[in-house]
Write a protein that binds this DNA or RNA. Sequence first.
DNA 1: AAACTGACTAATA
DNA 2: CTATTAGCCAGTT
Length: 119
Amino acid sequence: MANPGNYARICEVVRRIPRGRVATYGQVARLAGLAGHARQVGYAMSALEDGTRVPWHRVINARGEISPRSDPAGDGDVRQRELLRQEGVMFDERGRVPLMKFRWRPRGGARGGAESAEE
DNA sequence: AAACTGACTAATA
DNA sequence: CTATTAGCCAGTT
């Protein structure tokens, strides 16, 4: 990565997502000080080197689903779902995560449900 | 340097 | 619910 600065921020944020919680790309971007750069967050994830301790699997899209990615192996999304399930995250019939319940809420609870749920 | 690409989101229709 | 449009910006070609 030519500019790891942004990636570092993203990793920092992702790293502090507690177990059993998920965060959206937009949320991570905002917390990383890159509001509106949700795309860059996803891009950063794909650029992560192996051996990284960043829980990238806890980052999902705003719909609460695992974003389909163009992985040659094609097992990336499957693995992500497995990892989340291991942490106690439940999926509904459609394979989605109820953000209303599992969304990571930094701050004492100012967001989620009552406030602007997402962007 | 210019054009493409992409693990995204939100607003409309 | 799906489809379309537009905004966003770093990394690749």
